[in-house]
């Protein structure tokens, strides 16, 4: 019995090391936060579009699964994911909508002229209110919303090709099928 007490420290350390190993497992990123909005209805929004008089609103988008991408012209990582977004819209024909976060229309327009416009429609969230309602904590962020208007998935930071192929596209296929 007395000897067991002396074993306690090494056993506790074993447990600790196990947790550390879990935290180091591949594919796990402790920095990424899960969205608090998963499986909740997307917040209501009604934004003026970047071009023309159209409106980008939640109600107008319900009915089919869509992808909403928060971006800004001042955001460097957004440029990194831009080619992927182009691929999503032009090759995969994904319904991709943009929300331009805390940005000036002319700057956003310049960016899109330069790199191409992957979005079906872009809403201007000049004050960042919609971003706040979505729980955006840094652009770019990408949300998958199902046909009933629920948020199903969030990607923080620039999308990677693996994320698109292994997570985003399968999820969209599944949502379209159901």
């Amino acid at each position: 019995m007395r000897r067991l007490i002396y074993l306690l420290p090494v056993l506790l350390f074993g447990v600790l090391a196990g947790y550390f190993a879990l935290a180091l497992r591949p594919g796990y990123d402790p920095q990424t936060l899960p969205s608090a909005m998963i499986d909740k209805p997307a917040p209501d929004f009604d934004l003026a579009a970047l071009q023309g008089d159209a409106k980008l609103s939640r109600d107008g988008l319900i009915g089919k699964p869509i992808v909403v991408n928060f971006f800004a012209s001042w955001c460097v990582p957004c440029r990194i994911e831009h080619p992927l977004l182009m691929r999503l819209s032009q090759q995969e024909h994904i319904p991709l909508y943009g929300i331009d976060y805390k940005d000036k229309p002319e700057d956003a327009q310049r960016l899109l002229t330069q790199l191409g416009d992957p979005y079906r429609l872009i809403g201007m969230d000049r004050e960042g209110h919609v971003g706040l309602d979505f729980g955006v904590y840094g652009v770019p962020e990408t949300y998958v919303i199902d046909k009933t208007g629920r948020i199903r998935k969030r990607f923080v930071g620039p999308l990677s090709a693996e994320q698109v192929d292994q997570e985003l596209l399968p999820l969209l296929r599944q949502l379209s099928a159901s």
Binding site: Q31, V76, P77, G138, V139, G157
Partner: peptide, 11 residues
């Protein structure tokens, strides 16, 4: 990825 995130936050 982490580096990019830092970059994005700093900017």
């Amino acid at each position: 990825r982490a580096l990019l995130l830092v970059l994005l936050l700093l900017l």
